[in-house]
Design a protein around this nucleic acid. Sequence first.
DNA 1: GGTTGTTTGGTTGTGTACAATTAAATTGAG
DNA 2: CTCAATTTAATTGTACACAACCAAACAACC
Lengths: 146, 146
Amino acid sequence: MKDERYEGLKLKNQLCFPLYACAKEIVRRYKPFLDEIDLTYTQYITMMVLWEHGELNVKHLGECLFLDSGTLTPLLKKLEAKGYLERKRSKEDERNLIVCITEEGEALKEKAVCIPEKMGGCINLTQEEALQLYGLLYKLLGQIEQ
Amino acid sequence: MKDERYEGLKLKNQLCFPLYACAKEIVRRYKPFLDEIDLTYTQYITMMVLWEHGELNVKHLGECLFLDSGTLTPLLKKLEAKGYLERKRSKEDERNLIVCITEEGEALKEKAVCIPEKMGGCINLTQEEALQLYGLLYKLLGQIEQ
DNA sequence: GGTTGTTTGGTTGTGTACAATTAAATTGAG
DNA sequence: CTCAATTTAATTGTACACAACCAAACAACC
């Protein structure tokens, strides 16, 4: 017990590290399922927002996903190339780029609908634990970005 | 209540999304502190392992951090260029690349020692909640990679 | 109307991440 | 000993992620 000053610098005493590692590992877990519908994880959560909202501008999309234009612009171009969405300027305000789901994008929803349940089987937590984790993460997130 | 089939596809019903978003936001929170010692988050956790172990090979380092050589090789070269570590092949087994902390790397520990407490102030959780979160994350992680 | 400041996406550059492949070193079976 | 299999890093290619900067469109003021 000669020097306790550095205890805080050990990896096992970090809260952020399991958070960082978990996020990556979960995304990796999604990969086989997402490969089947040819989406990356980021593309998948982008489509989730579109499945729910139909259309919205890049700014709003970025707020939903905690992503900025530097990430979204190339990603949206790829999804447009795949035919799942259209990108068009708003007529009221030409600065706004409206992202709008296509019929193909809607159809993809049918293929994706099984993914959440498949992923559920990969999570080694009880329903109660999962809810607890969900709550804690949103509490942490809420303080960081409301 | 016309169609509940798609509830599982909503962003707000995902466990993975707050995990993904939280991890990114926490890393962003570290940035101002890490900028002061000119390290990125990944470089920081790499140095943490070195501060604790002094030296180890890339494989072992990768297991500690859940990272592979594709990520570590360029990162270790950067840290070597900064003078914080040395990379040398093991004499017993030339396949092993030993990563070994330098005196400069050790000295950096002094500058880093305040970071964990500073970050603690950015976490809006009680001690109990933080421990609970820590436990849940490691449980989730333990199932994925033990 | 012209000027100034703001909003909104786009671009550029740096740094991860990771799958897939490669290459060198070592090990192990015959 | 020799050759195949394994282990270990490095390399390559793709895809984020974000800071910093830029340009166009709009808004507000004179």
